[in-house]
Design a protein around this nucleic acid. Sequence first.
RNA 1: GCACAGGUGGCCGAGCGGUUAAUGGCAGCAGACUGUAAAUCUGCCGCUCCUUGCGAGCUACGGAGGUUCGAAUCCUCCCCUGUGCA
Length: 367
Amino acid sequence: MSLDFNIIATNGAGGRRGRIHLPHRTVETPVFVPVGTAGTVKAVAQDVLETLGAEIILSNTYHLYLRPGHEAIRRMGGLHRFISWQRALLTDSGGFQVFSLSGLRKVTDEGVRFRSHLDGSSHSFTPDHSIDVQIALGADIAMAFDECTEYPADRSRAQESLRLTIAWARRSLDHFRAHREEVVWREELGGRTQSLFGIVQGGMYRDLRRESAERLVEMDFDGYAIGGLSVGEPRELTLEMISEVLPLLPADKPRYVMGVGYPDEIEEYARMGVDMMDCVLPTRAARHGLLFTSEGRLNIKGKRYAEDQGPPDPACGCMVCRRYSRAYLRHLMQAGEALSGMLNTIHNLAYYLGIMERVRKSLHPEG
RNA sequence: GCACAGGUGGCCGAGCGGUUAAUGGCAGCAGACUGUAAAUCUGCCGCUCCUUGCGAGCUACGGAGGUUCGAAUCCUCCCCUGUGCA
């Protein structure tokens, strides 16, 4: 049973509005996916996420494997039940950690040997292992195990990285197909199973990106992600790579750009046909005092807001903007109060989710 | 009153004869954050000036003197704080 995705409107520029019918939720696209690495979107509780309208969140295979452990989560009925989130879930494969924990790992054809960032203990991740862990977690969408290529990477390095990612994609998919029936909620949800997405790499080389996309498409994944972007390259390059790859991906399957972006970026990508995007930016920046608003960036730590009684964003109707002043948010930040991160995160997520909602409505006013 | 221990830049606190406008930390100010090792990280943080430079001048380690080429650092007296004994 493959993933059910239907497109209900297009804009002539590649953009489309659609619905991904996942086992736990039908997700309206284009969609922004908040990041909840360790089984929590930092600083906000699940009921708040529901109120904000989040339909799908992302968790991380590597982090949950280390703590509390994927077998423990399986025994407790899977990640949805464990974190009490009955909407859609996506797990990243750990491929990004191959990149971000570069000081603590060693990559071979087999997979990656990691030293835990928690206690220094040694662990190895292979495509098979990543898939096993992801099946134990039971997210609606799992990701192929990839190597997120660093930037800058010269051509031979990007090529080598791409070769590895393609080989790992093949193994991820084979292993996934052999074991996808094992997901804990399968019976409960009428025999439905998880989906697996492949990840396009290729550094900043158009032809390598093209090759990566073509090889993955041949394998027939449930959806396709473009990875290895927003790793330090100029924005024009990010856009160039996305533009290069999108037309090569099957129109009838979801397209997902991983790890982007700023508000204007996600809007732009959505209008050109990206169906899904995740990013830590709204949540991390929120905890650090940076609010995204219709008037631009607002660093709430600024002294200039010390007695500003206006809302963070006058054009925003979120629960934070309706109730609290800039002066109060600045005070919470200054005082190091936990509520600071919570309120800032709520606003930023409301802002990001709002952008996607506007884009969806502009593509098709219904709903 | 006596005996110890102390008084350092907004606060705490190093330094105990010379690369000391003075280590650190906190607070403050500004900035960064893009599939989260991030409630983290970076820069500034005595005053003034400019040709903005590992620049110039000024003022600074309780107060006043003194020793010394040179003192936050040593000596004398005074003031204040803490602890103990009367």
